[in-house]
């Protein structure tokens, strides 16, 4: 908007106010009606869907399913899209770039869209952006609601060539809810972690696998995977052997 358009807007708005009505009580009563309705819904939800007491925190067990509140699903689902499997989907896009760029764009939006037009039907670019953003957020939230809660029966993952270490590794894999974030042969969640069906093809070696389990970020900088520091040496070896053999020894 240039100076003349700004002046014109201010004059027009002053005219609207002259022809208007007082804030109290005309706006106040509408505000209170809607606010009371919203508070009523909150109370009704609290009564119908009672809060529950979950399981106490146990940092040692790790049989958890990390799921955020529903209003973070759209960010959580981004992690499943950007898993670093190829150049187009680097992990940093989902963890940092996309959310932060969106946040900055949101804050500075009025300085980007400065046109004088206020009617949405005459602002095609703004309308298109709004429709795309709303559709994407709705879709990602819906995907988050639908995504499996993670618990997978070890028997559901059918692997051939399992030896003793492989069998023990698979049991650990299932007991520690790895399938809440990872997938093997189509079983488990499609993210945030990568698909492990062909883990052996990455040629990382047993030592890498064990270090990664103890402290993921030490081997994969920027990893959001929680650390598993409380296994025994035997368990590390079994799970590491199992992971290192996926797609090669165990198919």
């Amino acid at each position: 908007m240039n100076k003349a358009q700004q002046k014109e807007y201010l004059e027009d708005y002053a005219e609207a106010k002259r022809q208007g009505k007082p804030f109290f009580p005309y706006a106040i009563y509408k505000d209170h009606l809607v606010a009371l309705f919203a508070i009523g819904i909150v109370i009704a939800m609290a009564i119908v869907y009672r809060v529950e007491v979950g399981e106490p925190v146990n940092p040692a067990t790790t049989d958890f399913v990390p799921r955020p509140e529903w209003y973070f699903f759209f960010l959580f689902e981004l992690l499943k899209i950007f898993k670093g499997e190829n150049v187009l989907t680097p992990v940093i896009m989902g963890t940092f770039l996309v959310p932060n760029i969106l946040m900055v764009l949101l804050v500075v939006w009025p300085f980007i869209d400065r046109g004088p037009e206020r009617r949405i039907e005459k602002r095609p670019v703004a309308l298109a952006i709004a429709v795309v953003v709303i559709a994407l957020m709705a879709w990602l939230t819906e995907e988050g609601v639908k995504s499996p809660s993670g618990t997978v029966d070890p028997a559901a993952i059918e692997l051939e060539g399992l030896d003793e270490a492989g069998e023990a590794g698979l049991v650990l894999y299932a007991a520690n809810q790895c399938s809440a974030c990872h997938m093997i042969k189509g079983e488990g969640a499609p993210g945030p972690g990568p698909d492990l069906t062909n883990e052996s093809s990455k040629d990382r070696g047993l030592e890498w696998q064990i270090d990664h389990l103890k402290e993921p970020a030490s081997r994969t900088p920027g990893s959001s995977m929680p650390a598993f520091p409380n296994f025994t040496d035997q368990e590390y070896e079994d799970l590491g052997t199992f992971l290192e053999g996926l797609g090669d020894t165990y198919k």
Binding site: E55, F64, P66, P68
Partner: peptide
């Protein structure tokens, strides 16, 4: 401070 909350926040802080 239950399991679900704890581990979801671990992931959020890792992020």
């Amino acid at each position: 401070w239950d399991q679900k909350a704890y581990w979801a926040t671990v992931v959020a802080v890792n992020l």
